[in-house]
Design a protein around this nucleic acid. Structure first.
Length: 601
DNA sequence: CCCCCCCC
């Protein structure tokens, strides 16, 4: 198969021309920067068959497909940028950044270098950009300006900026090219999000800070200003405006607190210069989202951050309450979100976000950086600092989901990701606590869990003969003619099934209690099926004693329902184990550690 | 240099 490259394109591109979809071959791939997470940065040698360019870089979202395709791969470049920067010897160097590529043929399909490409000479690469001064793939924007001839009006500079040189005259670097290894740069970026000013006070000191999200056509990065930087820049920086920014300190990003797609984040320093870009803002996008559909959240890690675009199906009233742990007065609103995955999830808004949220008319809710939480086995989302919340924003995804909801989503069957998987995540309590707290007065009983030791199990009536109908567990009457009658089903059967109904005395350090349990819980405790238990006892009257003895001193996690019942005019607490599980010592130890921490204050 | 962000 013959592959065709867009011969001669590279020369023009590296001189600043805009050419639609160059088709290039990747001759070499070299890792240049290793990120803290999963995004490494790669330098490429690319060829158009006539020339090769060694100063090419791959935008990290393309890493996976290009690495997989390997050297000799042919790509169609759907979006690119060139940018000037100073190389190590202080010379200007133009680099080619591949923002979006489609694989035309993988390296193994191509197998060799096409044509006989010669390296573009230094002289060629260092020629000034063509007349319009900008270099861009597929639109007329000038996000990354080469050397610009025009001078800026210094009166436009804000008085509180410390620089004397206008950044506007300098070359602009794409955000995705920033790294700790290169500190001479200027970016031109839009502020897509700005936090409130926050103060802190801990053992290391105290202070105040704010952070903002910066975005350009190549990528995004978070920037934080501490202390005096707050005074200097907080009011000056406005969301949605565009700034020239230089000389921040670049360091590895902590992914735990930021969904921005960048391995780095930056911090303002005394050297930092920020100037508003008064002119053209074309081509610089506003917030960039990385949306996850709700169905996926069910399998995602608790505490991680996601971006969602969903419809508010319903919203609760504003609820105010006091946090048990901190005593703080909290306000929240629970919003049920749905999306095209036909799943719903609860989003909790706090404080003013909760107060301000209006759920009428099913608005589109777009969130960047919602925190995944878990409650009772279900997942939910919590929105708070560092995130961005928009209602009915003007983005394509918003219109798309609006259409989906109005046409079909509003009447569809929805799976609730926030649904609690089991009846509890009930509190761990000792039997003494159960007694002291007077559990059992709630109408449906009170739930708790306990890790306990079986002291004694009654060997009488371990099993009963039950109706063989699958959905019916009613005790049957032995008609003693080979038939069994179920009153509930009003039928006679030639067979029955064994069911367990056991009572055992369970102890922990604080006391003991009698717990009843039904079939499956009893099977777990005995390690036998009800059928096996029934048959063994049937064939050997001594079997029951053996079975009971083997259970003694076994330990389990008991999930219990306690309810006060009146029996012969006497109130007593009836406890049923609704779930019995082997002890997960890791979880159990965490419970104990948390308790110790509580006790220690 | 923050990074707590809440509740059942």
């Amino acid at each position: 198969m013959a592959f065709k490259l867009t011969e001669g394109y590279l020369e023009s591109i590296m001189e600043g021309a805009e050419l639609a979809t160059p088709v290039l071959q990747i001759l070499a791939i070299k890792k240049i920067v290793s990120g803290n997470a999963n995004k490494d940065r790669y330098r490429l040698i690319v060829s158009d068959g006539r020339h090769s360019v060694s100063h090419a870089m791959l935008a990290s979202q393309n890493n996976e497909q290009v690495l997989q395709a390997g050297e000799h791969t042919i790509v169609k470049v759907t979006r690119y940028i060139t940018s000037l920067f100073n190389n190590s010897s202080g010379k200007e160097q133009r680099i080619l950044l591949l923002l979006d590529v489609d694989i035309v043929a993988s390296g193994s399909q191509v197998g060799s270098t096409l044509g006989n490409p010669t390296p573009l000479t230094e002289a060629k690469k260092n020629e000034p950009a063509s007349s319009n001064n900008y270099t861009k793939g597929n639109s007329s924007s000038n996000t990354f300006v080469g050397m610009s001839g025009h001078s800026s009006n210094s009166s436009l500079l804000p008085h509180n900026c410390n620089n004397s040189v206008s950044l506007e005259n300098q070359m602009i670097h794409p955000i995705c090219s920033l790294s700790p290894y290169q500190n001479k740069w200027v970016i031109k970026a839009r502020v897509s999000n700005k936090s409130a000013i926050r103060t802190w006070s801990n053992s290391k000191g105290e202070g105040k800070l704010f952070s903002m999200d910066l975005i350009d056509e190549s990528g995004e990065i978070r920037c934080t200003g501490f202390k005096e930087m707050v005074d200097k820049y907080y009011d000056y920086l406005q969301v949605d405006k565009i700034y020239f920014i230089s000389k921040c300190q670049i360091k590895a990003a902590n992914k735990k607190f930021c969904t921005l797609k960048n391995d780095y984040e930056m911090t303002m320093t005394n050297e930092t210069t920020i100037q508003e870009c008064q002119g053209e803002d074309n081509g610089i996008p506003s917030t960039r989202y990385n949306f996850t559909t709700i169905d996926k959240i069910g399998n995602m890690e608790v505490d991680s951050l996601v971006d969602v675009c969903a419809i508010c199906k319903e919203a609760s009233e504003l609820q105010a309450f006091q946090a048990k742990s901190s005593g703080r007065e909290l306000k929240k609103k629970e919003v049920v979100l749905v999306d095209q995955s036909n799943c719903s999830i609860i989003l909790t808004l706090w404080g003013t976000d909760a107060e301000n949220f209006d759920g009428t008319n099913n608005p589109v809710v777009v969130i960047k950086g919602a925190r995944i939480r878990e409650f009772g086995g279900g997942k939910n989302l919590s929105f708070s600092v560092g995130g961005l919340l928009k209602i009915n924003p003007d983005i394509p995804e918003s219109f798309r989901i609006r259409g989906w909801y109005d046409q079909e989503g509003c009447s569809g069957n929805i799976v609730d990701i926030s649904a609690k998987s089991s009846s509890f995540n009930a509190t761990f309590m000792s039997f003494k606590q159960v007694k002291d707290h007077g559990l059992g007065n709630a109408e449906k009983g009170d739930y708790y869990q306990n890790v306990g030791t079986i002291l004694l199990m009654s060997s009488n009536n371990l099993t009963y003969k039950a109706c063989p109908t699958e959905s019916c567990n009613k005790k049957i009457i032995d008609l003693e003619n080979g038939m069994y009658r179920c009153e509930k089903c009003n039928r006679e059967f030639p067979n029955f099934k064994y069911r367990l109904l056991t009572r055992m005395n369970v102890a922990d350090w604080s006391g003991n209690t009698w717990i009843s349990m039904f079939n499956s819980e009893g099977e777990t405790v005995m390690g036998m099926t009800a059928q096996e238990v029934g048959e063994q006892i049937e064939s050997n009257s001594e079997a029951a004693a053996d079975i009971v003895e083997k259970v003694n001193f076994k330990q389990f996690l008991f999930k219990c329902r306690a309810k006060m019942e009146t029996y012969n005019d006497e109130a007593r607490l009836k406890t049923i184990a609704v779930e019995v599980k082997p002890i997960n010592y890791k979880d159990f130890n965490n419970q104990i550690i948390n308790k110790i921490k509580q006790i220690m204050g």
